[in-house]
Amino acid sequence: MENTIRRQRTSGHYSFCGIYILFLLTLLAFPGFAVPKFETGLMVADTTGPKEAKPKSLTFTASTDQRFFFFNDTRTEDNRRVPVSVYGIRAGFLFPPSQRRDALRSGRSASFKAGAGFYFVNQRLDRPGLLPNTSESVTRHLRIATVYYERYLLRRQSFEVSMPIELGYGHSRYEINDEQAEKYEVARGVFLPLGVGVSAAYQFPTVRWLRPLHWFGLNFLTGYRFILKRDVPESQINYTGLYFSVGPSFFLENLTADIKRWRQKRKNKR
């Protein structure tokens, strides 16, 4: 039976905004937590471009992350897959290069970043008949925790290209409702996703009278998700498939570097 969907109702958008606002307020309330241990050492000679400072320690970084997954059971009337919004947040550390890499000539020098993330989906599939031979409708809840390693392939001033690799643990909860049969069931399952992708980001330039501008930028991500192992009811789909993300990006490391810079200037004036 061809599975279709009229529309996706996700309540996660407001929850996601709340998490993001709370996260930023926490950083402002406890700025010492967010300030990275980023020390400037000797200037590294560079005959092909401007000089740059070489970091000696890790730099904390975090960002919100909205992606679009393609599920087999979310389709239009003409059987085309419809992207499903997946909301998340990532946090980790930027690791300085252990040796010189010409592709990483940037004041924000880093060889790779690594950390953890959390993603969730609350999706209402309100068209009966999504499950074979039944009139049941489904509400789907997904929770996915991941660890990631993201190596930078190119990092030049305001532009960067990287290759993220993610391994996670996912939990699915399907609330199955059949009003005709007056039946309500909950089906749970787990799965192990592995994702490989390519990410490109652009950071807005630094403007002396508007420095917060360079805290933001644009990000593009595309990749493929493989399900290594799944233990889910037969009614649930295999989540292997394509994903992508296009939207604004927030560079926490730039914010915390500016906080440290402002603190140092105030200290020098005293």
Rank of each mutant, 00 (worst) to 15 (best):
E253L: 12
F251Y: 15
P205T: 01
D102L: 07
Q236F: 14
A103W: 02
K113W: 10
A187P: 01
N133H: 02
R261C: 01
P31M: 03
K229T: 07
D178A: 01
G117M: 05
L131W: 03
Y149F: 14
L27N: 14
A45W: 10
Y119T: 07
K56M: 15
K54Y: 15
P248H: 02
E136Q: 03
F30N: 10
L255E: 09
N3H: 01
V138P: 00
N72I: 05
F250R: 06
P97A: 05
P50M: 01
R140N: 08
W215N: 11
G32V: 05
M43L: 15
T74S: 11
L125I: 12
S63N: 09
S162C: 07
G189D: 14
V35W: 03
L213Y: 03
F23S: 12
N254Q: 14
Q99Y: 11
L221M: 11
Y20A: 02
R67V: 02
Y174V: 06
S162P: 11
L24W: 07
T222W: 02
A110W: 02
A103I: 02
T40A: 15
F251K: 08
S199T: 14
A53Y: 15
F244C: 06
V82D: 06
L218V: 13
Y87N: 00
M163R: 01
L94P: 11
F33D: 10
H141W: 02
D65Q: 02
D73K: 05
A145Y: 13
K265Q: 10
A187C: 04
S235Q: 09
N177K: 04
E136P: 00
L27M: 14
T134Y: 00
R211E: 15
S249H: 13
A257F: 09
R151G: 13
R270T: 15
S11N: 07
R263F: 05
L42H: 09
